[in-house]
Design a protein around this nucleic acid. Structure first.
Lengths: 226, 226
DNA sequence: GTCTATAAGGAGATAGAC
DNA sequence: GTCTATCTCCTTATAGAC
C-alpha cells in the first residue's frame, strides 16, 4: 500500500502512455516498445510493474473503465432517489449512463485519449478484454434495463435492452473518431468541442426509447397477460 | 478478365478464409499463416495473388463493402422514385441504408462472417482501412443526409447527420457481437436469427430522427433566415 | 500457378548487473 | 527499481525450383 514515489511515477507514466497509444492505434498494434518510448522509461519496466502486456492492458482498463461504470450506477441511484415512485425521466436515465465518459475526460485534463480508448475497447477482438467488458458492462446494462422499464413502462424490457445496446454502439462510435463527424458536418459538429455530441445523443436515444414497440415484441416471459 | 479456373478457386478460397478470420479476430491479429491454413492453400499464394497483406485486405474490402454501399444508393434511389415530391418516409430511407448489410449476408449463405466483418471494419484503427471507409462512406452519408432532410424537413441537416452517424454506430455494434445481445436479453433477442435486430434498429432510429432539434441547433450556414 | 526454404525484422519476455 | 543485452518466437515477404 506504500510504493516508493519513484515507482509510482514510473508506473503512472507507463499507464498514461499506454492509454494514449492504445487509443491511437488499438490494443493489438500498440507495442510495448512504443509505449515505453512515449513514457520515457525502460523496456523492462513494463514487465517489472505489470508482468505482461495483458497485465498492462488490465491495469489500464481497471484504472479508467471500472470507475466510469461505478459512476454510472451512482448517478442512476441519484435519479431513482429523486423519483422514489412513478416514472423516471428517460433523459435523466440516459444521462446517468452517458455522462460519466464525458466527465472522466473533463476531470482528467488530458487530450481525448480517454474517449478514444473507450471506443477502441468496445470493439476489441481480444478475449481477455471481452471478458473484462462483459463482467463490467453486464450488470450495469441489466440495471439500466430495469431503470428504463420504469421510465418507459409501455415498452417491454427486452426491447429496451435492444435499444440500450443501440445507444452503447452509437456512443462508442461517437467516441471513436471525431474527425469523421467533423468532416461530414462541415465542421459544425465536433465531438471534441465538449458536451454537444452527448446532448445530441441523449435527445436521439430518448426519442428512440419512447418509440412504440412492434406488435408482439417482448411477449412470452413478460408478465403482461397470458 | 479470364483467369484460369484453378487460380480463381485459390483466390476465392483465400478471400473467403480471410474474410472469416478478419471477422473473428480483427485485421491486426489475423495472420496470413492462419488464413492460408484455413483456405487450404500455400503461404506464398497470398503474395502471388494480392501482393501483400494490405492488398488482401483491400481485396476483401472491395469484394464486400463496396457493393453494399452501391446497393444502399440503389435502394435510396428507388425510395425517391416512389416519392417524386413531398416528404420521404423516414423508415424507408433508414431501411435503404441498413438493409443491404443484412441482404448481403442472406444472399451469401455463409455463416455470419459478413456481419462481423462490417463491425470490425468500422472501428479498425488501420489508416488504410480508414481511408477506404471514408472514401466509400463519405458520399453515401452525404447522400443519405440530403434524403433525411427530405424526410424530416423540420430538423436541420447537420443534426440529421449526427443522428445518421449514431445509427451507423448502433448498426456496427449490432453486427459486432451477437452474443452480448443474446445474453443480455436472456436469449430472446438474437441478431443471428435474422431481420429482427434490423427491424428494431429501424424503429429506434426512425423515432430518434423525428425528435425535435435543440433550440439553436443547425443555425448559421443553413438557409433558413439570416 | 504452386510449392519449399529462408530472409529480415519486430514482437513479448527474461537474466542478471547495478 | 532500473538498466542492458539477449532469447525465442512469430510475423510478412521473397527467391527460386518445379
Amino acid at each position: 500500500m506504500s510504493p516508493a514515489p519513484a515507482a509510482h511515477d514510473t508506473k503512472t507514466a507507463i499507464l498514461d502512455a499506454a492509454e494514449a497509444v492504445f487509443a491511437e492505434v488499438g490494443l493489438a498494434r500498440a507495442s510495448i516498445r512504443r509505449i515505453v518510448q512515449r513514457a520515457g522509461v525502460n523496456l523492462a519496466a513494463v514487465h517489472y510493474h505489470f508482468g505482461s502486456k495483458e497485465g498492462l492492458i488490465e491495469a489500464v482498463f481497471n484504472r479508467r473503465v471500472a470507475p466510469v461504470n461505478a459512476r454510472r450506477l451512482e448517478l442512476l441511484a441519484a435519479v431513482e432517489a429523486a423519483h422514489p415512485e412513478g416514472a423516471l425521466p428517460v433523459e435523466a436515465v440516459l444521462e446517468a449512463f452517458l455522462r460519466p465518459m464525458q466527465e472522466a475526460r473533463e476531470a482528467d485534463g488530458r487530450a481525448d485519449h480517454l474517449r478514444r480508448l473507450y471506443g477502441r475497447l468496445v470493439g476489441e477482438p481480444s478475449e481477455s478484454v471481452g471478458r473484462m467488458m462483459s463482467r463490467q458492462f453486464g450488470p450495469v446494462l441489466q440495471r439500466f434495463g430495469k431503470a428504463l422499464k420504469r421510465a418507459v413502462p409501455e415498452v417491454p424490457e427486452p426491447v429496451l435492452l435492444w435499444r440500450l445496446l443501440f445507444t452503447v454502439g452509437a456512443a462508442a462510435h461517437l467516441m471513436l473518431d471525431p474527425l469523421v463527424f467533423k468532416k461530414l458536418t462541415r465542421g459544425r459538429c465536433d465531438p471534441r468541442a465538449g458536451a454537444e455530441g452527448l446532448a445530441e445523443l441523449i435527445r436521439f436515444a430518448a426519442a428512440g426509447m419512447r418509440a412504440p414497440a412492434a406488435a408482439g415484441a417482448g411477449e412470452g416471459d413478460q408478465e403482461e397477460g397470458s
